[in-house]
């Protein structure tokens, strides 16, 4: 554990809590991609199956359980509790175009051809693209509420901090996880365009982020 990793995890947690509270308090999931949230729930489910097979630390276990619970609670809010506010027609990204290649790649490129390893690899690949339905939705509607952009900002910051974490681990421990690092870099790139808009539009005070 290093400072980048810890801050990264905290940003990840903050992002998830921001989204959950936004939906809970406003009783609306307008502008939120339910598909991205289902993908994230799938990411956590397939990655954290090791909760049943190996114990790493209390921190690790608690965080995994919290992420799982919040991910499913968010999906519940979007698809059941506040379903009437869900913009399903704007959330039109075809997730099968992500799931099929990601599933195929996880069978081809993994560390071991074992069920848990393939599922872990699948979760890593899937996480790197899971935000695309959300970004697609913002591009399609041309705007996002500022609270949604804060959510995306913390999610992107979490990714950037994980990159710093890997640089740190490489130099201090000689650690290099090719699958996680390559996917992590790809994932972070997806946020770059968003980061630019966030700093130039949202932080300059306009309530919503509108695309040029």
């Amino acid at each position: 554990m290093n400072i980048f990793r810890l801050l990264g995890d905290m940003c990840h947690l903050v992002a998830i809590i921001i989204l959950f509270l936004k939906i809970w308090r406003s009783k609306s999931c307008a502008g939120i991609s339910g598909k991205s949230q289902v993908l994230f729930a799938l990411v956590f489910t397939t990655r954290y199956l090791d909760l049943f097979t190996s114990f790493i630390s209390v921190y690790n276990t608690v965080m995994k359980v919290v992420f799982l619970v919040l991910a499913y609670a968010t999906v519940y809010l979007i698809y059941l509790r506040f379903r009437s506010t869900y913009n399903s027609e704007s959330d039109s990204f075809r997730v099968e175009f992500l799931l099929v290649p990601v599933a195929g790649l996880s069978f081809l490129e993994n560390y071991a051809f074992a069920p848990l390893e393939i599922l872990w690899t699948f979760s890593i690949y899937l996480e790197s693209v899971a935000i695309l339905p959300q970004l697609f939705m913002i591009t399609k509607t041309g705007e996002a509420e500022s609270i949604t952009t804060h959510y995306l900002f913390f999610l992107g910051l979490y990714r950037a901090l994980y990159l710093a974490n890997w640089v740190w681990r490489y130099h201090t421990e000689g650690f290099f996880d090719q699958i996680a690092v390559v996917s992590g870099v790809v994932q972070t790139i997806f946020y770059c365009d968003f980061f630019y808009l966030y700093f130039t539009k949202v932080l300059r005070g306009s309530g919503k982020m509108t695309l040029p």
Partner: peptide
């Protein structure tokens, strides 16, 4: 050999 290094990350 299953590489488990990254599995300690979230």
């Amino acid at each position: 050999q299953v590489k488990v290094d990254a599995h300690d990350e979230l």
